[in-house]
Amino acid sequence: MKNRIWIYLLVLLLTFLLIILFNRLAKPDFENPAQNPYDLSLDSLAQIPPELYLPLDYSYIDLPLPQAKALATDSAGNLLVAGQQSILVLTCEGKELLRFNTPQTATALAVDHQQRIYCALENHLALYSMQGDLLKTFPELHPGAYITSIAYSPGRIYLAEAVKGDVYEFTGDGEFVKSYGKGRDKTAPDFLNIPSLYFDLAIGPDNSLWVTNTGKHKLVNFHADGSLRSYWGVTSAAPEGFCGCCNPTHIVLMEDGSFITAEKGIVRIKKYNYGGGFIGVLAGPERFGPKAVGLDLAKGPEEQIYVLEAENNKIHCFRLK
């Protein structure tokens, strides 16, 4: 009788252990993304063939300013960074030269030939000296305006305003000249379709204005009178194209008229020739953190390309060989 009780107990224990083991094995591995039947894998899209990478020198600067919003360079090669209601001036090696406060965090920066700093304070522009003194405040564009980029060419200031998707042109004294977004055919390439707060401007070597038409994956070039001069851009997830809702997020033009572009979604920095022909890739997603989005670009006097990765508090520096 006693033995029988022991056998019953043993059988019970074995059953109990088997149930535990079965539960363990049947439990899905939650850490494994393959367990997700609805996984949208972007890994294959993010793959860039190695032969597309351009030879370059690379370095980076750790940024002593969290939540940076905008990046610019001056003619001396210093870097200007806006973030947390201040402007930081750094040497190209990252040594801090100056820091001054602004009433709001600047959303865009540009430096003119007199080394004055144009600073976009959401809906209006402010002009500062290189010592941080406020020289002038421009009137607000409209109450809900959000300036995402400033481009300076001698005698002209251009502002990209993302809420209405318009570009405003001012004289150097702040007198309004014209806007570029209104009255265009909505199907035309120069109708600016700006779905989000990524809207960039750049000035070409011939002082003409280039605008990112992010909703159409195009870069648009305007004549001085505001009419369409040219445009380029291909919609594609392939390395030579732009994809997603708002790409390229940022551009910069080099002295030879070539373009450097930054993208979000599939985070890439790429180079195109003056006609929009794809040349190669400077950096792919592996260079940046997983949260990198909207990488502001600036160029140095020796053709350095600076990339602001605000999410990682870094300024990446590329110099093509």
Partner: peptide
Amino acid sequence: CGYCDLCGGYFRPQVKKLDTGAENQLCP
């Protein structure tokens, strides 16, 4: 929403045509 033609939430990546064809849609 940006009311985009090329919507990353609607279309599969690398679609050939931006239309409502079932083969282009991301939603299962």
